[in-house]
Amino acid sequence: MHPTRPFLSIALPSSPPAQLATRSSVTPLNRRLFGLPTPPAPLTSLHNDLPSFLDYARRTSLPEKTTTYQGTIYEYTVQSHLRASAFSLHRVGGKSDLGIDLTGTWHVGANPVIDPPVRVIVQCKATKAKLGPHVVRELEGVTARHFAVSLARGSGGGVGMLVGPRETSKGVREALGRSAMPLVWMMVERDGRVRQVLWNGRVEKLGLGGLGVEVLYSKSGEGEAEAEVSTEARLTWEGKEVQTMDEVEEGMKRLEEEWMTKWKEDGLEDVSAEEVLDAVEKFVPETRPISISDEERKEVARSLLLTRSGRVQ
């Protein structure tokens, strides 16, 4: 198992980090272009992020001590704050959810904007007590069942992740290390701060060998004696901090604009992006549209021009 590797320590200013978006800005067009999975249908129309849930809870006088209130707040907190660690997550639930609370993609790698992301499922355990190894065994089974189809196709499946507000126990660490499935543990406090990240060797076999963690220290208080030291764990890739999902999504938008510009240069100024994508997906169905070669693009462009001019043989 690989806990917090490499392990670095630096001083942090006491000012808060820049505000990140709480939800994904990826459009259906982005998803087709980059071959991203379709997000699950919303659980409810009453709320879709932490601010809207808090507003809903106030309007309905939802008791704060209920399991529903505490669990939902923690799930939304994890969903929004893990965007800083390159996770794009969506809430799921229901009788057939296998105990999965969040599902989505993890955009890490040498080029996280264009590299295929790793699919991930998340179980949030907002408990006060430390979790035992049984939760790892449960997650192992859920991960195997959830990714059974992709595993059967030999495409590598995805990562199962446990998130909780308490530090991991020795039993959990040992269970992670023994697991035959790619599993991750993250300690995320109720305010969203990530304190601990652990993963097993199976995760690295998914192409994530460059992952590491640096531990950042910050002080609060007027003097050295009164100052309280707090820590935060941040993911790195080959020693550099990973891009946030805000940065990844902004990069996707830029690449989409560049991609469409190339089609216009090929003489398709008045063709919609949807029409281009339809043609690309038909011509090279096993390739993500963003990754097609220049030769393939020109061949598709010629076909579209012939079709639009009515000269298809």
Results as ranks from 00 to 15, higher is better:
L305A: 07
G209N: 15
L306V: 05
L102R: 05
R31T: 12
V135C: 01
E265W: 05
E75D: 02
K253L: 09
E274S: 09
G171R: 04
E295Y: 05
K170A: 14
K125T: 01
E64V: 05
G109W: 12
G93M: 08
G251N: 07
S15I: 14
A227I: 10
D191W: 02
L29M: 10
S309H: 11
H107K: 04
M1Y: 13
G212E: 09
A233D: 08
E189H: 07
E296T: 10
P42D: 02
R311G: 08
T22A: 09
V26F: 03
L176R: 07
S52N: 04
P13R: 08
L306Y: 10
R137K: 08
L89I: 08
A144P: 02
Y217R: 15
R254F: 11
T168D: 11
P3I: 11
R58L: 12
E247I: 03
T38H: 15
V229N: 06
H90R: 09
A110Q: 14
K170W: 08
V135F: 01
P39T: 02
E189Q: 15
T168G: 07
S14G: 15
D191F: 01
T77Q: 06
V300D: 01
V184C: 05
T4V: 14
V135H: 03
G71S: 00
V122M: 10
P116S: 02
